[in-house]
Amino acid sequence: MQNNIDSPDGQNNNDYESWLDRPKYTNVKTLEDRTETRIPQGTWVKCENCLSQLSIEQLEKNSYVCLKCDEHLTISTDKWISLLSDKNSFKELFSQIKTSDPLEFKTAGNSYKDKISLLQKKLQVDEAVKVGRATLNDIPILLSVMEFSFIGGSMGSVVGERIFLAMKMAADKKIPFISVARSGGARMHEGILSLMQMAKTSAGTSMLSKAGSPFISIITQPTMGGVTASFASLGDIIIAEPRTQIGFAGPRVIQEAVKQKLPKNFQSAESLLENGFLDMIVSRNNLKQTLSQIINILKN
């Protein structure tokens, strides 16, 4: 279920007439490489898309959206949290739930266990999701943000459990649940347990529905596989950032299966909106305001 995303330098891009026509997702590096694309420390940052030099200060003010080309740059989980929640309102929950290695999963020379501890040290992030309580323009919410740099934001037991418990808490308190998704899909290293997290998080959405807690799903670059095919597609309202790649099967898998060129803007947020699977595409600058507007209307 986890999908590799075509690398930017791959030959697959030759099918497009010019580089301008290429869908934005071709800029995404492979899942493994993605760890390097977080905003670095320093005064200047290069836009991932148009390569303009942008000052951190400017970007900070503009929610890390490129001032030249509107590219929504990849930001860390903590940046997302501060973007959507009121200052110092976020209290992390369920962080005591830690990753184990239930299958003792090994590939040639690499163990899942080692990979986890290596990433935890390197990224200072303990898993592919962080959940917690917060307020959004003074509205109490439960917030969940995925972290793509951690094994492609993939969903294993810990991600499923944290999201499920946060949904359950939102349902119990009858408050909104807001999720920011970015994920390659279900995590292979935990086998069938990962697959079952799709059902588990979907069970959580069913509890939210029954409790009357609004569930707003925000889909960001990129969201694929088992995460798209579970809770991320089950929001009462589904919002995506511009040009996000959203899909089930990866483009390479599809291309191999159907043996034909993929259409322009295939699996882009814009085409999903056109086909009726998204409610809206919202620029990161307007996101918090849009969310509070929706919640206020729904809860009124």
Partner: peptide
Amino acid sequence: AYPGIGAEKRGQASAIATNLQQ
């Protein structure tokens, strides 16, 4: 699930997710 162009356009992920929830 079938990895096809049409399947994606017509909401493969959404269809699976809806079943899981419902």
